[in-house]
Design a binder for these strands. Structure first.
Length: 575
RNA sequence: CGGAGCGUAGCGCAGCUUGGUAGCGCGCCUGCUUUGGGAGCAGGAUGUCGCAGGUUCGAAUCCUGUCGCUCCGACCA
């Protein structure tokens, strides 16, 4: 592609709406254009990057035997009512009506549609297993779209659905997708981790997320330094302490703690450590009052509470509710004689007795509380978030925390949708069986953003070669010189002959503009040809990632380029 | 949904307090000069000041309403 003929508009200044690097750079390079909040269009450069990602995904999906189809984004409400998600999904489901007032939605995901196809097309065990996928727009009316392509209301997703005769088959399909995802993200030259994850509103029995590692990621993941364990903190399991201290404390008594609300304040006031306190958090779980107890130095993980109750919605109680349930202002709730429908305690709290708790009375705490003796604890469960001192739940090794961007998610769904939508087949014995399902998504547009998030510097994007809209940018610094231009054209067709995507900067611009734009748009390999270099018989080459420059001789250029290309790719961990 | 902020040229912004000719930088167009890290000079084009209503002789500016956008939080494969 010749830059003089390509529509490219780069911005010098940072658009005020963008905060994070990928959003800023996608706008500055003119790769995307916002239409309205959370809805973006792709311009030539951006669309090329998107297609590169898509192509790699398609190749790896096809390799597993999955078949690409294309369903509409518009979906009839009936199917969603049948699965129950029309009511369960909430305002994020983008609903619309046709002229006759019939309900539809724009698909946020396609379990219903794919299950519907399969239940009408598949009737025999001979047709299974089957895996269908598509690359298509998804719509989620996000409460707060943000960060450009990271969290948009319309986005591009590859979604695949597997259909198997039994659980073993479904596990094999899941494994095949998991492996395919590893290959996809490896081929994209991204640093990523597959982690154990919460299965959220898609449902199902287990799932893994694929996280691209980046500081600006919205998720936190824990990863064991010694074994393979890695999980989203939302889901990472905590181990109860090994030792147990059953010594029964003396009877509890009230202590006066005027205006001491927080754990820190109370601990300091009573000269005890925060880990000797119990934090009593009051929650509304699907409309029921619940108290969740964790050690004073721990953080409650609301997702674990939600999963424990298999609840739809969990929220912190309002100050009014706290007062109504505990009889005291915020900061003094405790588990002794608390009027709530359930009290659940973190596993760790079973390990010892003699706690400091809130007194359910203003300015009052209790000491020497025994959960077993003094409180009605409904159940003990893993409720807290891990912290840096926690051991790995698998091997007890040490954990590290990092930020990640979720670019892929694989779920084993089991019978969730086949039961609600009655997707069945006849087995060898002529008996009707439910199809066992899995579903697998990759946020294609988010991958492009994540890739930039992981690979950029002050000057612009550093695209990994497999994602780069162009692998090489060839800048002709002297477009008015016939010799230089002839040489540039010669190199341009030579490189294209090698199957590379090359962008020839043949604009009548000053060198500085060309250098800045080359760095900004982030082609992994930059070549510069100008009168000076030509006189010396060389082309300058710059590795965008490392910044390393070298001179390639025009005599024997092809060999010198091949060697250089190899070092550039090696820098990306590519063969 | 709660809190905060912002809507003025393609982009970044000033002007609003104290009402009176709509501005600056970048970008864009023309010409000349320039040409190895976002050139210089000269000339030029581009605005329903988000929208609607109100106050006023007169509103970008004051008042009311409304829409949009962004950030923090809540929420979220």
């Amino acid at each position: 592609m010749r830059l003089s003929k390509m529509h490219l508009r780069t911005l010098r200044e940072v658009p005020s709406e963008a905060e994070i690097p990928s959003h800023i750079l996608l706008l500055r390079t003119g790769m995307i254009r916002k239409l309205v909040s959370g809805v973006y269009g792709f311009m030539p450069l951006g669309y090329r990057a998107l297609q590169k990602v898509e192509q790699i995904i398609r190749e790896e999906m096809d390799r597993t035997g999955a078949q690409q189809i294309h369903m509409s984004a518009v979906q009839p409400a009936e199917l969603w009512q049948e699965s129950g998600r029309w009511y369960a999904y909430g305002p994020e489901l983008w609903r619309l009506k046709d002229r006759n007032g019939r309900d539809f939605c724009l698909g946020p995901t396609h379990e219903e549609i794919f299950t519907d196809i399969v239940r009408s097309e598949v009737s025999s065990y001979r047709q299974l297993p089957m895996n269908l996928y598509q690359v298509q727009h998804k719509y989620r009316d996000e409460a707060r779209p943000r960060f450009g392509l990271m969290r948009s209301r319309e986005f591009i997703m590859k979604d695949a659905y597997s259909f198997d005769r039994d659980d073993e088959g479904a596990d094999a399909s899941y494994r095949a997708m998991y492996d395919a995802y590893r290959r996809v993200f490896s081929r994209l030259a991204l640093k990523f981790r597959p982690v154990e994850a919460d299965s959220g509103s898609i449902g199902g029995s287990f799932s893994h997320e694929f996280m691209v590692l980046a500081q600006t990621g919205e998720d936190t993941i824990v990863s064991c330094k010694e074994c393979e364990y890695a999980a989203n903190v939302e889901r990472a399991e905590s181990l109860p302490p090994a030792e147990k201290d059953d010594a029964e404390p003396p009877a509890w008594e009230e202590v006066f703690t005027p205006a001491q609300h927080t754990v820190e304040e109370v601990a300091t006031f009573l000269s005890v450590e925060p880990k000797n306190l119990i934090k009593t958090l009051l929650l509304d779980v699907d409309g029921k009052s619940v108290a969740a107890l964790v050690r004073g130095d721990r953080e409650l993980n609301e997702i674990k509470v939600k999963n424990y109750f298999k609840a739809g919605a969990v929220r912190m109680a309002t100050p009014e509710e706290v007062t109504a349930w505990s009889g005291a202002p915020v900061g003094f709730a405790g588990p002794v004689d608390l009027k709530v429908s359930a009290v659940i305690a973190d596993l760790e709290l079973a390990a010892r007795e003699g706690w400091v708790t809130g007194g359910n009375k203003a300015d009052t705490h209790l000491i020497n509380v025994s959960l077993a003796r003094d409180c009605k604890v409904t159940a003990y469960a893993d409720l807290r978030s891990l912290d840096a001192n926690d051991p790995c739940p698998r091997c007890k090794g040490s954990l590290e925390f990092m930020r990640g961007i979720e670019v892929g998610h694989v779920f084993k769904l089991g019978l969730k949708y086949s039961e609600s939508l009655k997707a069945v087949f006849l087995d060898e014995n002529g008996k009707e069986q439910y199809i066992v399902m899995g579903c697998y998504g990759i946020g294609v547009s988010r991958v492009v953003a994540a890739c930039i998030e992981q690979n950029h510097d002050e000057s612009g994007i550093m695209f990994p070669p497999p994602v780069a809209p162009f692998e090489v940018i060839l800048a002709n610094l002297d477009t008015k010189s016939e010799e230089v231009s002839a040489k540039a054209e010669e190199l341009y067709s030579l490189l294209r002959g090698q199957g590379l995507d090359v962008l020839l900067d043949d604009r009548e611009e000053r060198p500085g503009v060309k250098f800045k734009d080359a760095d900004l748009v982030g082609a992994p390999m930059q070549l510069v040809i100008g009168a000076k270099g030509l006189a010396r018989g060389i082309v300058e080459a710059k590795d965008r990632r490392s910044g390393e420059k070298r001179e390639l001789p025009l005599g024997g250029f092809a060999a010198a380029f091949a060697a250089w290309k190899q070092t550039v790719y090696a820098g990306w961990g590519m063969a």
